[in-house]
Amino acid sequence: MKILLMGHPNVGKSAVFNRLTGAKVTESNYPGTTVDYTKGYMRLEGKDVEIIDVPGTFSLEPKDKAEEVAVKMLKENKDAVVICVIDSVKLERGLYLALEIIEEGYPVVIALNMWDVAEDKNIWIDVEKLEDILGVPVVPTIAVSGKGIKELVSRIKEASPIDIEKIVEKAGGVEQ
């Protein structure tokens, strides 16, 4: 099993990666800090599991070279579990990429990162409801302080491929 860390640029993927692996990849507050992937290892239920910090991408249709790397990493690792890191302040945008990855058939875990920033901005996300609709584990995290990371790790095993039709049904259908 492999784990891919994916998400939009500047949502804190590298911060999550450093937390999970104890590595020292560069974390900065601007989009495009990570332009190439980094591999690392984390302990998961007594085993060393490979985890990859993937450059940020807005969607699975790459717009620049760093995004190309991201999409390529996903396509090359068909057996991977994807931790989709979402900026809690921009849930909608983050869900777009998460849904695309779910539709491709990957098991997904969602980390709602920068939870503290969303709280500051008075944005409240009903995590249980979101989990119920999506059918994937959703965990609020604050990667820079390490909050929620343990729970994120403990719930990786719950990830399984979800049929998008189920999500559509739960959400109340879509307009064709």
């Binding site: 909608e92 869900l95 979101l130 959400a171």
Partner: peptide
């Protein structure tokens, strides 16, 4: 779909 999900989960 995202619109529908967000309406039910974000305040």
């Amino acid at each position: 779909l995202i619109d529908k999900i967000a309406k039910q989960t974000v305040k």
